[in-house]
Amino acid sequence: MKEINLSEMSIKTAVRIMMEDSEYSQFQKVAEALGIRKSTFQSALDNDALRVRDLLKVADLLGYQVKIGQK
């Protein structure tokens, strides 16, 4: 299992890593699969401001699970 630590990278980088092992090669395709406008999704990624509920959807779509832990 690959672990991605969001305290060490941007959300955009984390999503890009999750996409590596999936059928999705573009952010636009992920946005379409989730029913999110591409511009809204891209803006959230660029600003490191993806909502938690959308991050959970992305992770699920790409075969990941989100774990929250204490430092």
Rank of each mutant, 00 (worst) to 15 (best):
S25Q: 14
D48E: 10
Q70E: 06
K71Y: 11
D48Q: 09
R37K: 15
A31Y: 08
L56P: 02
T13W: 00
Q28C: 09
G63R: 10
K12V: 03
D46R: 06
K57Q: 10
A31Q: 06
R16E: 10
Y24N: 13
D21V: 07
I11G: 02
I11K: 07
L6K: 01
D21P: 01
T13R: 06
L55G: 03
M1L: 12
S43P: 05
L56F: 06
Q65A: 04
L61C: 02
R51C: 01
D46T: 11
G35C: 06
K57C: 08
G35I: 02
G63D: 05
D48T: 10
R16Y: 09
M19Y: 06
K67H: 05
N47E: 07
E23Q: 13
E20R: 13
K12S: 11
L34D: 01
T13K: 13
L56T: 00
E23D: 15
E8L: 14
K29V: 09
L6D: 11
F41V: 05
R51E: 02
Q65F: 02
Y24W: 07
M9E: 14
K38R: 12
I36Y: 01
E32R: 04
V66P: 00
M9P: 06
M1R: 02
S43L: 14
K29C: 02
S43E: 12
S43K: 15
F41A: 06
Q26S: 13
V52M: 10
I17C: 00
